[in-house]
Design a protein around this nucleic acid. Structure first.
Length: 935
RNA sequence: GCAGGGGUGGCAGAGCUUGGCCAAAUGCGGCGGGCUUAGGACCCGCUUCCUUUAGUGGAUGCAAGAGUUCAAAUCUCUUCCCCUGCACCA
């Protein structure tokens, strides 16, 4: 049994002693790989192994390919979670404490965790320890956290660069807000960690006839404004007049509560529903529209006033029909604004009520069903029928009309929480507040976007199928709020009351790794912008920079050299969930700030990890802490399962079963290596050549797979297939020490990126004294790859299969097991004849050849040959050309007679059709010898 | 709703880019057999249905439906369903 823990500790310490993974400037080609740095507010679990482990596999592979690899790591302390963490701990939050206990955070540590910095440092140490135990080939000298002063200097420089390029803009922005604490709230500030989901809604204003005031109606379908016949209110609701940004609006009181956080809202006076119903408004085309009671109007939703479009809203239609039955609303006729080609309903909402098998008097649920159906079909297939918008799809029309209404100030925007109610941890309901004077990074800048797209076209994205997601992310990203009122991090240079938001301070930080170890120790005050501009942009000269910053000349030059050397061939890694923010921002910021040759070269994304088939979550209690996993199974096994258990884009599954499967195979290879000493070496036989062929083919395909990061395929070939091949080799009585040594030795190197510790151990068991981790990646020897030898083995299998079937049949007939089985190999001429048919798929081709006398076979019995050729008729399509000749087949069967007889449980003999007296000899085909059982 | 990914045999998961060698790799599970005192491990076979006492033949089949083609899990269209993200959360 492999002693994983012992092996891991041993090699980790050896690697450390040898400084094996420290990246230093040299004249070799560089490869710089970074994985999104972790947030130190919780211990790691095996899910984290996916991204970092994948990164490590690549780092290790590239190192073996001869590149000078730098794989650094740092920590991201920016933002609010650590503060929230401290607060929760202070309040003795039971959930949090349980969670931490599960991760083995000692009780006395919990008591000390009052200071956010202490918390950060604790988890930094915890995570680093886990990463070391996992065997990541990280250069730890470059470690830093994003909340250290010297890093802040770098971020200040970055934002100065963005500002210089006019990419920072100011504006309004909605945020989740706690009115009690007067704070923005994110997911970690809410009860049950709910993200407040904010949605922009539009409220269309209808002028009240005879008044300088408006009724505001929220709607999801502003394009139907042309079909408005009236307004609906709820008779039970409370309404009032308000002055909203200088205009008098009628709103429900509930709506005013929401709006007052978003714009200036001044209460004027109550307006009872009865009074509301007396008023008349003016529609978009100047038509008079009455205010009516709507049975379905929800007083909590929107403004509490609904615009009625009976042609396209089953609820509106129903409400009007019901009023008509009571003698009201008599003058109202639906106005159609859009049609579905080919359907042409006179009154669409009525049609959908019918489709939903109900009518205007139907139940709320049935009408809702009709509504959903209508909205769906109309949005899918509807075409506008209103002048000026003819033929537009509903979505196109919505976009245009919304913009027009807002432009003409006929509508206002309001924000609502979609997932109501959301509670702040303090107990208050969360609202949406619109923050003025918010700073944004303007990712919508046209020129910037174009340049970023150009940069993107040169980036290698793995897996390839995630490319589309990036494309749409690059298109979609627009303004991004960049300043926060609270949190750890770097102060926003343009307004020191704010902190730079956490994703925005980690877009070009990878460059910082190239100098972090050099500048640590320098007084941060000396790290002035001109220093960074020189190092990263090569602007200015080192002497004047040295003079103005007070940093010594040599240090500055070293920084520049280091950046220049490493920041060329870069690869960035993270989870797929970061495509739509971090990774896209990463590309944008590189493009904005750095020179073109520093732009990203490769981005790799990976899926997440499931635990025993389930998503890991606190509530399921199925989170496996990384340290627990390593303790229980060993780092190499969980690396293998988590990193190579699925292709990059899919989730991989961690399960005890999967670990067991890997463990068994690792042990088998390990045992094989240990038994090598007792194996003799001799002349190479067929099965030895076979193993070499398989090995070299494996090296070739594994190299191709890992190059494209098809890690699942790579791992399967290298571990699973190796186990199968070795077993077959031994079953076939293979026993050549040299061959097995070559095989295991190559496999141990091939495995090294994914299971570095066991590989290192294997490598040394084989007598090597170098480190497998930095050995040269094996190259295949194409000459050793033989289709012929491999197909002979396949042929042997199928022959055994056939014989078994026949032996079974004969057994039933004779009532006993045969004493021996005779294999009669097909006549020599049958090979070429079969190949002609297999190649041309035509019997006639073979017939022609036979007629010509088949030059090589002068004594060919033409009649017999013709019969044989015609007999191939049915099999034409399944026949395969083969290089295996009669001699090969004869030799192979003879050599394998021991194996055959053990498989068939009786004696075995082999002869050629030409020499055979058997009645069955005639039926032999190449690769399918005739079989005669003797009793 | 928008965007991205996906739906394959008891399960997991390849294959679909470059249509035919695909009743569909591989692993797990199940069944039968071998080895064993026994279990585990290992080895062999079976694991859609029907047919077949000489190494078969046939039907159905890769979410559903339609299409292109001599030929489709693979290409096109439509529908249904699932997963992920949607912004201040790292």
């Amino acid at each position: 049994m492999i002693d994983y823990k012992g092996i891991e500790a041993k090699w980790q310490s050896e690697w450390d002693k040898a400084h094996l993974f420290e990246g230093n400037v040299s004249d070799r080609e560089s490869f710089f790989i970074t994985v999104a740095f972790p947030y130190p507010n919780a211990p790691q679990h095996i899910g984290h192994l996916r991204a970092y482990g994948t990164g490590d596999v690549i780092a290790r592979y590239k190192r073996m390919k001869g590149l000078n690899v730098l794989f650094p790591m740092a920590f991201h302390g920016t933002g609010t979670p650590i503060l929230a963490f401290a607060k929760r701990l202070k309040n003795n939050d039971a959930d949090l404490i349980n969670e931490l206990k599960m991760f083995h955070v000692p009780e006395e540590e919990l008591k000390k965790m009052t200071d956010p910095l202490y918390i950060a440092n604790y988890f930094v140490a915890e995570i680093e320890n886990g990463m070391r135990r996992a065997g990541y080939s990280i250069d730890w000298r470059r470690k830093f956290t994003s909340i250290e002063p010297f890093f802040s200097k770098f971020i200040e420089w970055q934002f100065k660069m963005l500002d210089d390029r006019r990419l920072l803009v100011k504006g309004r922005h909605p945020v989740g807000w706690c009115p009690n604490e007067n704070n923005a709230v994110g997911m970690h500030d809410t009860k049950h960690d709910v993200e407040p989901e904010i949605e922009k809604q539009i409220a269309i204003k209808f002028k009240v006839d005879g008044e300088e005031s408006y009724m505001a109606c929220t709607t999801y379908r502003p394009e139907t404004v042309f079909g408005v016949t009236n307004l609906f209110i709820n008779k039970e609701a409370s309404y009032a007049q308000y002055k909203v940004d200088g205009e008098v609006l009628y709103l429900s009181k509930a709506a005013a509560e929401i709006l007052k956080y978003q714009m200036g809202v001044e209460y004027i006076k109550d307006v009872p529903p009865q009074e509301m119903l007396q008023k008349r408004c003016i529609g978009i085309s100047g038509n008079a529209i009455p205010v009516l009671p709507g049975f379905f109007v929800n007083k909590e939703m929107g403004t509490g006033i609904v615009m009625s479009v009976p042609a396209h809203a089953p609820f509106d239609y129903s409400a009007i029909e019901r009023l008509k039955n009571e003698g009201q609303a008599t003058g109202i006729t639906p106005i159609k604004v859009l049609d579905i080609p080919g359907k042409g309903y006179p009154i669409p909402s009525l049609a959908y009520l019918k489709i939903a098998q109900t009518d205007a008097n139907g139940s709320f649920e049935d009408i809702e069903k009709a509504t959903k159906l209508e909205y769906k079909e109309e949005s899918h297939m509807g075409r506008m029928a209103i002048k000026g918008y003819e033929g537009l799809s509903e979505n196109e029309a919505r976009e245009r009309i919304t913009a027009e209404l807002l432009g003409k100030k006929q509508a206002i925007e309001m924000y609502i929480l979609v997932n109501l109610p959301v509670y702040c941890r303090c107990g208050y309901g969360v609202v949406v507040k619109v923050v003025d004077n918010q700073w944004f990074i303007n990712y919508g800048d046209k020129e910037w976007k174009e340049k970023t797209k150009r940069a993107f076209s040169n980036i290698k994205i793995l897996p390839v199928k995630s490319r589309k997601a990036f494309e749409s992310a690059i298109d979609w990203i627009d303004l991004r709020a960049v300043a926060r009122a609270q949190g750890l991090g770097t102060k926003f240079p343009l307004d020191n009351n704010y902190i730079i938001e956490s994703l925005s301070d980690s877009t070009i930080y990878m460059a910082f790794y190239t100098i972090s170890n050099i500048i640590r120790g320098i007084n941060p005050e000396n790290l002035k912008p001109e220093f960074f501009s020189y190092v990263f942009l090569n602007s200015g000269d080192s002497e004047s920079v040295s003079k103005s910053t007070g940093i010594d000349y040599e240090t500055i030059k070293r920084c520049r050299e280091s950046f220049d050397y490493w920041y060329v061939n870069t690869s960035r890694h993270s989870g797929v969930d970061l495509i739509f923010n971090h990774l896209t921002m990463y590309i944008y910021n590189h493009v904005a700030i750095l020179e073109e040759r520093r732009w990203p070269k490769q981005i790799v994304v990976n899926g997440s990890v499931l635990s025993e088939g389930e998503k890991m979550s606190k509530s399921l209690g199925n989170i496996v802490p990384l340290i627990d996993g390593i303790e229980k199974y060993g780092a190499d096994l969980i690396r293998f399962v988590v990193v190579a258990g699925a292709d990059l884009f899919s989730d991989s599954e961690f399960s005890a079963d999967a670990v067991k499967g890997v463990d068994e195979r690792m042990n088998f290879i390990y045992d094989t290596a240990r038994q090598l000493e007792s194996m003799e070496s001799s002349e190479l036989s067929h099965i030895d050549y076979w193993l070499y062929s398989k090995l070299n083919r494996k090296i070739r395909s594994a190299s191709e797979s890992i190059e494209e990061l098809e890690l699942r395929a790579y791992a399967t070939t290298v571990l699973y297939d190796s186990a199968i091949e070795l077993r077959r080799y031994f079953n076939r009585n293979g026993s050549n020490g040299i061959v097995v040594r070559d095989y295991v030795s190559a496999v141990s190197l091939l495995l090294s990126p994914i299971t570095p510790h066991v590989s290192e151990e294997l490598w040394h068991i084989l007598g090597n004294s170098s480190f497998a981790s930095v050995e040269k990646w094996p190259a295949p020897n194409p000459e050793m790859i033989s289709d012929k030898i491999e197909s002979e083995e396949l042929m042997l299998d199928s022959i055994i299969n056939d014989s078994k079937a026949i032996v079974e049949l004969m057994k039933r007939k004779h009532g006993s097991h045969p004493r021996s089985v005779k294999f009669i190999v097909a006549a020599k001429w049958k090979g070429p004849v079969t190949n002609i048919v297999a190649g041309s798929k035509k019997i006639s081709a073979a017939v022609d050849a036979i007629k010509k006398g088949m030059e090589d076979f002068k004594d060919l019995d033409k009649e017999k040959a013709m019969a044989y050729a015609t007999g191939l008729g049915k099999k034409v399509n399944s026949l395969q050309k083969t290089e295996v000749t009669q001699d090969d087949e004869y030799r192979m069967l003879s050599e394998s007679s021991g194996y055959l007889s053990s498989m068939l449980n009786c004696d075995v003999s082999v002869e050629r059709e030409e020499d055979s007296k058997s009645a069955r000899a005639n039926g032999a085909m190449p690769g399918r010898p005739a079989i005669e059982a003797v009793f």
